[in-house]
Design a protein around this nucleic acid. Structure first.
Length: 275
DNA sequence: GCCGCATCCTGACCGC
DNA sequence: TGCGGTCAGGATGCGG
């Protein structure tokens, strides 16, 4: 389940292994992987200039004002592998290079992810112009975030997952940050003080930084870096996936609540439910 | 315009 | 063993 730290691990791998290289050919093996760009997605002879990221989106700027934009969805992988290696079962898009070196392959079991060729507007891919900067970018405006958050009439976890407000946070790190900040997921946003929001943002940055150091979170082989390796942060999780296990602060069993057709994990003692 | 929910998808896992 | 049901979840689009 790639969120910001996992996507950043992949971005670093791409920066190391594919920048400066000229694409020889692109092959689309599943139409859904390129959305409405079947027949349009053709990046042969283009040069990959760098590897960029905002929130959970990755993009590879090409020569000219275009880029290959990628979202890993829930099970997407961008792998740098030998052109001779066997084709993966869920291979969706394959890029080969003029230097004859390793392929870049987009593999995605559940096909929630996608790649596309898009224009860059002020350095940002056009389709993601509506998402907010992530909390590690210089462009992230903490005061604006605070103001918009308090103006909302919703629950704090829903707001954290709203990519137009703050990008990069998914279900795992939302639960971790809320645990660290001692906030219940259903807390109405309009009741949060500026100080509490600052504390929550610090918690978001802290859990994501810690995850990045460990190469991201993984529960199985679905999330991997460009070399197919998993991270270790799942060993450091405090709330997510820890139903009935003791809270490391107070020993109370972590509870699981149904939330938006998925799960929310929290400590019923440290994170008091709002009235 | 804002909010919340259903939807897309496949494989792992569980109970019968 | 095999089958059906459930769960995982980011972004999108639609209904209220």
């Amino acid at each position: 389940m790639p969120e910001l730290p996992e996507v950043e691990v992949v971005r670093r791998g791409l920066a190391e292994w594919v920048t400066g290289r000229t694409i020889a050919a692109s092959e689309v093996l599943h139409p859904r992987a390129v959305r409405r760009q079947l027949g349009v997605f053709d990046v042969a002879h283009r040069v990959i200039v760098s590897a960029e990221r905002r929130g959970k989106y990755l993009w590879l700027p090409l020569d000219g004002d275009e880029a290959i934009l990628a979202h890993l969805g829930m099970s997407g992988q961008l792998l740098v592998v030998s052109p001779e290696s066997a084709l993966e079962k869920h291979l969706r898009v394959r890029l080969s290079f003029a230097d004859g070196g390793n392929d870049l392959r987009f593999v995605d079991q559940r096909t929630f992810g996608h790649v596309m060729l898009t224009a860059l507007v002020d350095g940002v891919p056009e389709p993601i112009a509506h998402i907010a900067p992530d909390p590690f970018e210089a462009a992230f405006d903490e005061e604006l975030f605070t103001r918009r958050l308090r103006a909302k009439r919703t629950e704090i976890k829903r707001a954290l997952l709203d990519q137009s407000l703050i990008s990069g946070v998914g279900n795992i790190y939302a639960d971790e940050a809320l645990w660290l900040a001692r906030l219940h997921w259903a807390r109405p946003t309009e009741t949060l003080t500026k100080a509490k929001i600052a504390e929550l943002l610090a918690a978001v940055r802290q859990v994501m930084s810690a995850a990045l150091v460990q190469g991201g979170t993984s529960f199985d082989s679905l999330y991997v870096n460009v070399n197919g390796e998993s991270g270790y942060f799942d060993r450091s999780l405090e709330a997510y996936g820890r139903r009935d296990l003791p809270c490391s602060r107070c020993g109370t069993p972590i509870r699981r609540d149904a939330f938006m057709n998925r799960s929310s994990f929290s400590c019923p003692r440290c994170q008091r439910k709002p009235r």
